[in-house]
Computed example of a mutant assay.
Amino acid sequence: MKRVLSAVLAAATIISTSSVAFAEDNVSKSVYGGPRCDKGVKLGNKHCVPFDVPDNSPVSSSIVHLVQAGLMVGYEDGSFRPDNPLNMAEAATVLLRLLGMPPKEDTADWAAAAIADAAKLGLVPVDTQADAPLTRLKVAIVLAKALKLKPSTDALPFTDLSGLSDEEKGLLAALVKAGIFSADAGKEFGPDTTITRGEMASIIERVLAKYK
């Protein structure tokens, strides 16, 4: 757990220093003081923010933070595409970066490499399909394992968990207890709902806030 916390704290430090540098550039007042990225400019440098993420989007600050920290990467055209779904390989890549062990992304089969590295850490089964969609349940399980959380016996108020195993419910309860997921009485969790890039950014930022 100490190793995980060290990696998370390091990422949080990167975010903090990036935000300071961003403000010091004094370029404009979009999200965190940066101008929109021009189309054709690869997203990732601290001087611009995704042109397709509105300032009033509930995930805009999370996206900018994670892009600046290098935990999530945008596209060559300056976009982030927050509504695009994530697959298992992309999620594994984000989590490996979070843990300070980024996979080799310059290989032809980067997706397989990311799954293999995540499997070595026990985050995903070795037979995980790289292009399988990332659901809310899957991200909860993988994230709980990455943070080395133990299953909690706390009751969950969600109304759609009848198909989950006791272990899955316990890990989800641990994440709720940690504040990574919220639990509203009478609400559905949506275990089979696909996670988007914007939602993943919001989830990972909550992890950083929890372990700052």
Rank of each mutant, 00 (worst) to 15 (best):
L156P: 04
S79I: 04
T196K: 08
L175G: 04
A118G: 01
K46L: 00
A116L: 13
A174L: 14
D184C: 15
D25A: 12
E24R: 11
E205F: 11
G122L: 04
L98S: 03
I195M: 12
G78V: 01
L149G: 13
L96Q: 11
A10N: 11
K187G: 13
D154G: 08
A140G: 01
V142K: 02
S79H: 03
T194Q: 10
G122A: 03
I63S: 05
P82I: 00
V20H: 07
I15K: 10
E199R: 05
D166W: 09
L9I: 02
D166T: 11
L147W: 01
G190Q: 07
A114Q: 00
V94M: 10
K46S: 11
K138R: 06
A185D: 09
A132R: 11
S6V: 06
L71C: 12
P54F: 01
L156N: 10
L172S: 06
D77E: 14
E24K: 11
P125Q: 04
A146W: 00
T107M: 05
E199A: 15
I180P: 00
L96M: 14
N84T: 03
V142S: 07
G74P: 11
V31N: 13
S162Y: 05
G163S: 06
V94G: 06
K210E: 11
G33E: 09
M200I: 07
C48R: 04
A185M: 11
D131E: 06
K169M: 07
D77T: 15
E205V: 12
H47R: 09
I63F: 01
A144V: 13
L172Y: 00
